[in-house]
Design a protein around this nucleic acid. Structure first.
Ligand SMILES: [Mn+2]
Ligand SMILES: [Mn+2]
Ligand SMILES: [Mn+2]
Ligand SMILES: [Mn+2]
Lengths: 221, 221
DNA sequence: ATTTATTTTTAGATCTGTCTAAATTTATTT
DNA sequence: AAATAAATTTAGACAGATCTAAAAATAAAT
């Protein structure tokens, strides 16, 4: 269990996110995600390769090694547990937690995190609906579908929101849509790809294509 | 409200501690406290002077400016609030909190700390009995005296323990002495400067000079 | 298959924080 | 008051992380 610098951790986490379920990540994509320059990425890739955290051949992109993925899941665990703590215990709103967790995630004391997990009651998802890896790095990969693909009249539960910024939160709160909300799509309109949805017994409302694209749902409770 | 690096913050905090109530701190003393080298201290002092955080003339030692003290109190506030959180909410023991707080203290988000303070119920002292500065940097300077100077038969309350390591905790727990414990000194023995103390209605016990020197008490409740 | 455009890497610089070894200043002794 | 000792600063080096500008490799277009 070596320790990695804040910078190394930010690179590892970004690669994990970009590579999805086993893709390869390019220098430019990573530089863009981290708001840094391609030359800096190449430098860091050499360092992380030397530490055996990723596979990398010059010009061929990179992907995390098994150890790299393990490290990434540890960072994501810390990030999401802190987000849960901030939202649940300190009453931060949904769009404020990410920024603070971005710093707290780098305090990597195993006991701290495991005790925090226990204190929080072993939460399964963070305030954005993203799953929290457990102490051994296991993460539940529940199959979510985008609201744009949910069959008509099929009841589903909001499990996740892609964009996690302040403006979308404002809209979702106004629409009374949050993680865990049950809803169904009544009708889709081809003209602007807007759709009419019904939440519980509330009157049906219309939501835009842009909003629907950011809402992910799952079946059952 | 500028932001300072972890390194700068560690220097500022150490100077604050060493200078006590307005003394001047020497290069060697600071190097020793931070387990670094005198040359590194001189380098950093130049930087902190340029940022107007301290007064410093070469060869003449240094002391924090008003702004430097303000920054120091902010760091101490964060440190002690996290220590309280770790002990009270995550059930860390007394000697474990410091190390973790040493890292958490550098996450300097004002809202995070003020919300944490509120969540914890605005605690006045950390798990070692040290006072916690409030949101505006005020800190209560309660006059504590060392157990070695407490007059005989004078009841007092344990308010603070100087050494905060694991071995002293073990001994204090065995003796049933903790922050808030009421006790009085029954007798002092010149031979080894040990003393007999009485805690509440428990039978009197003997404690060593070394232990007494690390216990600080205050009068009244 | 060349040429052109894009992506990626290298070369060289800068900034922070640290170190060792040498020089300088201040304090202490004789 | 000199000489010696101790404390402090300077000089020069190095590692981590970043950048700009130039070179090299790969991909796309003609
Ligand atoms: Mn981060
Ligand atoms: Mn999240
Ligand atoms: Mn620290
Ligand atoms: Mn403390």
């Amino acid at each position: 269990m070596l320790n990695y610098s804040t910078s190394e951790e930010n690179y590892i986490k970004a690669i994990y996110r970009l590579q999805g379920s086993d893709g390869t990540v390019s220098t430019n994509a990573l530089a863009n995600a981290l708001r840094t320059k391609p030359a800096s990425v190449t430098d860091m890739m050499k360092k992380l390769k030397a530490k055996k955290l990723l596979h990398y051949q010059p010009y061929q992109g990179f992907r995390l090694s098994q150890e790299g993925s393990r490290v990434a899941l540890g960072i994501i665990r810390r990030h999401r547990l802190w987000e849960f703590f901030l939202a649940e215990k300190l009453r931060f709103s949904w769009d404020e937690v990410h920024e603070v967790a971005e710093e707290l995630e780098h305090v990597s004391n195993k006991k701290l995190i495991d005790k925090l997990d226990e204190f929080l009651g072993f939460p399964r998802v963070d305030p954005h609906g993203d799953p929290i890896p457990d102490a051994s790095g296991r993460i539940e990969i529940n199959k979510r579908i985008c609201l744009t693909e949910l069959p008509l009249l099929q009841v589903a539960i909001v499990s996740n929101v892609k964009d996690q910024s302040s403006p979308i939160l404002e809209l979702l709160e106004h629409m009374k849509i949050r993680i865990g909300t049950k809803l169904e799509v009544k009708k889709r309109f081809g003209f602007d790809e807007s759709m009419e949805i019904k939440i519980g017994r509330l009157p049906a409302v219309l939501i835009s294509k842009q909003l629907a694209e950011n809402i992910f749902v799952k079946y059952e409770g």
